[in-house]
Design a protein around this nucleic acid. Sequence first.
RNA 1: GUCUCAGUAGCUCAGCUGGAUAGAGCAAUGCCCUUCUAAGGCAUCGGUCGCAGGUUCGAAUCCUGCCUGGGACGCCA
Length: 557
Amino acid sequence: MLTLKKTLLEVLQPFSPLPLDGNMIERPVHAHLGDLALPCFPFAKALRKSPIAIAEEIAAAVDHPLIHRAEAQSGYVNFFLERSVVTASLLHTILGQSSTYGSSDRGNGGVVTIDLSSPNIAKPFSMGHLRSTVIGNAIALLVEKCGYKPVKINYIGDWGTQFGKLLTAYRKWGNEAEVKKAPIATLLQLYIRFHEKAELDATLNDEARAAFKALEDGDSSARALWEWFKMESLKEFQRIYDLLGVTFDSYNGEAYYNDKMGPIIEELTEKGLLVESDGALVVELEDGLPPCLIKKSDGATLYATRDLTAALDRKTTYDFVKSLYVVGNEQSLHFTQFKKVLGKMGHAWSADIQHIPFGLLLKDGKKMSTRKGKIVLLEEVLNEAIALAQSTIETKNPDLANKKDVAQAIGVGAIIFSDLKQHRRHDIEFNLASMLQTEGETGPYVQYANARAHSVLRKAGSMRAFTVSEVNDFEWAVVKLLEQFPDAVKRAADELDSSIIAKYAVDVAQSFNSFYGNVQVLSDSEDQSYRLALVHCVTIVLEESLRLLGMKSPREM
RNA sequence: GUCUCAGUAGCUCAGCUGGAUAGAGCAAUGCCCUUCUAAGGCAUCGGUCGCAGGUUCGAAUCCUGCCUGGGACGCCA
């Protein structure tokens, strides 16, 4: 309640011996205690009175048109707002601002680069990449709503020793026809086979390293195979991005930086930061951090080398005010090192780089590993969710138009929402059943609330002017939540945490469903026009919330 | 071993910039479709907030130690 809180702060400041801020006003845990509350405990010392007495004095003295009444209760002043005044003003605001409700311009057009998705070529798109894609996309939408200009970069993993492994495996055991038939699946099998054999025969790893070195040095046969693998992979990834509705501003992957790493190595050398260690070149770091490897003993580059190059390139290309990397928890150390190295190079903007870590997707309590073939394929999961939504539609709403599109919106929505609703740092135990769920705190639940709201609006026909006379508890609960939307957006953007939006959307859907179940909107009552306006506002806020999560809002389902 | 993240109801989680009786969803049980989409609503059941100290008028929330689990820890990314 940003504006309500602000107003209340101004009203209350004269009574307080301390400067008040928004954090000191809270929402009571139970609705019967009031709409907003001021705990008076912090004032006791300065005023040398008991919090109970202070609360009573304030409650008796406060007088404002927005405040219906103020009650003192065990050290708190509980405020009951003038419901009809607040409601009328809020509904007009939301209807007037429509989808821009909750938007701000505090980003001032500054560029925020977001490194997201970043699947590895020749490997299937796993559930792990889903997290990065979905979280990164939602953050892009969030910062955009706050006036920044997001640049989504899909930093494709198309370089590195893994390609040496793949090239080696393909030359030993692969054939062209099989790869053509089922590219990713076949390449994955080769990759897995390589690791099985390498456990028994360590010389394979040496071969792989040599093969990658050859690729990096421009060997034409290696290069041709690599191009082919990459093309096939990108085709497969695109199908998934289309399904998820995610687009990118750049697909510059690691290979893009292959011939651009010279300058950074020179810069590191000039600044005296490179040190030789066991034949490799490293940058030593303080604070007990392990050194950052820049060049392997065979002269080949590493992840960190390319990341540094990419960071410098992005700074000159985009001049970002913030650069975000949506990459798993397990790479935290790498990002700490990488930022430190940039700092040591004298780039003050290294402070604008931020790792957005997220928890692993676990299977039986353990990390899934591509190398051992322990992965879950995202495309299969998505298709299953869509099929499930489709069959639900057939039983519940068989006459629905565009069943296919709606089923896709719901199935994909269920998957996206199940990921975004929990705090991103938590590890997630992979559970297909819970991702496919459509009841309770799920994406389809929120979408359903919105569809019901639209159904009411359709039946009502055109909107009319309204006046608010009385606001019942069901309506008031919805109004109070709608009022918090800008605050939820702000908190989510401050913490770059879309789960705040997801939880907020569930709250709105719950309060709306409760209202819907208990209050008849379409009726002869003179409250109908005001209730319709409320329902309309619910759809505006729900749709905007879902949009910020990267989800669609079908009007019928 | 070092660093790091986590431990809240049977399960999955919210609350963690300290504030009132710790909240949801799932599961279980019982109601509600001759009122706007039952992917819904209403109700019941369910908790030593990992353990032990400390700070505070007040701690799930902050500090310290311990226990348990995940992850990372130079030539992978």
